[in-house]
């Protein structure tokens, strides 16, 4: 279906605009690329349930995406939590008055778990892992290793894309929940130990107003981001052309496209996911 759409737009494009690049040309190539990603997503999904499963790559990717991202996620989550704690303290202190700062607790947890941490994790991982996927698969492409896979009877999607997408889907929520904990601890630390907010009240308010769904909706988002990162990285890798330069282009494109997509999709998910259930 998507392929048909892409194809018909291509046809239109060649006949009408052989040389000049009109706005329609860019619109076409945009649609074509959307088509490509859609097709890859579809193929990945189709191949999810087919043997042989690439357990080795899956585990390797779990480690690459999850374990090796821990330092980056720790740092970003900690400083995200600190600065968020700082501004929340300031807000309550200035506008509501001394004593109300203990209500910063639930605000911080809400903001972190629903928005800030999933986004930070998504952006960090697309920079760290999405780009690496594009570079690795892109290098395989230009050195004919993808063709070699094919010639050995292995489906490149099943062998390369499926394990990466699955690993990313599993690991992003894990990183997010880890980031949630670090971020909330950092916010708590700033408020209670640096600014001297009442510890008991801060904790009580947090527990009182925090809901499990707040955390869950952040995890759902991050799972979607995980799929986005892996798909974009693999897609760019697989369509790499033109030597080392092409690999470079594929990696930067991956980071740019994945980051923008994450921010856009995040907004719509925030809108679509119910505030509480």
């Amino acid at each position: 279906m998507l392929g048909l759409l892409t194809w018909s737009f291509n046809l239109l494009n060649h006949k009408m605009f052989p040389i000049a690049k009109s706005p329609l040309y860019y619109f076409n190539s945009f649609l074509q690329q959307v088509g490509e990603v859609g097709l890859l997503f579809f193929q990945t999904f189709k191949n999810l349930f087919k043997k042989p499963w690439e357990k080795r790559i899956f585990i390797q990717q779990l480690e690459e995406i999850g374990v090796r991202s821990l330092p980056v996620v720790s740092l970003t989550a900690a400083f995200g939590g600190l600065v968020f704690g700082l501004q929340t303290y300031l807000g309550f202190h200035r506008y509501i008055g001394p004593g109300s700062e203990t209500y910063g607790g639930p605000i911080i947890s809400l903001g972190l778990s629903k928005e800030l941490i999933p986004i930070l994790v998504g952006l960090m991982v697309s920079g760290r892992v999405g780009s690496a996927m594009a570079a690795e698969i892109g290098t395989m492409k230009i050195t004919e290793q993808i063709d070699a896979l094919f010639s050995l009877g292995a489906d490149p999607t099943r062998y390369l894309v499926v394990p990466r997408t699955l690993a990313s889907l599993v690991m992003l929520p894990c990183l997010t929940i880890y980031g949630d904990i670090i971020g909330m601890a950092a916010g708590f630390f700033y408020n209670v130990y640096i600014m001297g907010v009442n510890r008991v009240l801060y904790i009580r308010n947090t527990l009182l107003y925090m809901e499990l769904w707040d955390i869950m909706s952040g995890l759902i988002k991050s799972a979607v981001f995980g799929v986005i990162i892996a798909l974009i990285g693999c897609w760019q890798g697989l369509r790499t052309e033109g030597g080392a330069e092409g690999v470079g282009r594929a990696t930067t494109r991956t980071v740019v496209i994945a980051s923008i997509l994450i921010l856009i999709v995040n907004f719509f998910l925030s809108k679509a996911l119910p505030a509480d259930i």
């Binding site: 690795e136 290098t139 395989m140 050195t143 004919e144 290793q145 063709d147 070699a148 896979l149 094919f150 010639s151 050995l152 009877g153 292995a154 489906d155």
Partner: peptide
């Protein structure tokens, strides 16, 4: 893929999986 498994191909640059 079943048919391609009947072929063995040696690529120009060998195309060994470098990982």
């Amino acid at each position: 893929h079943k048919v391609t498994r009947r072929f063995g191909m040696l690529f120009q640059g060998s195309a060994l999986f470098d990982s």
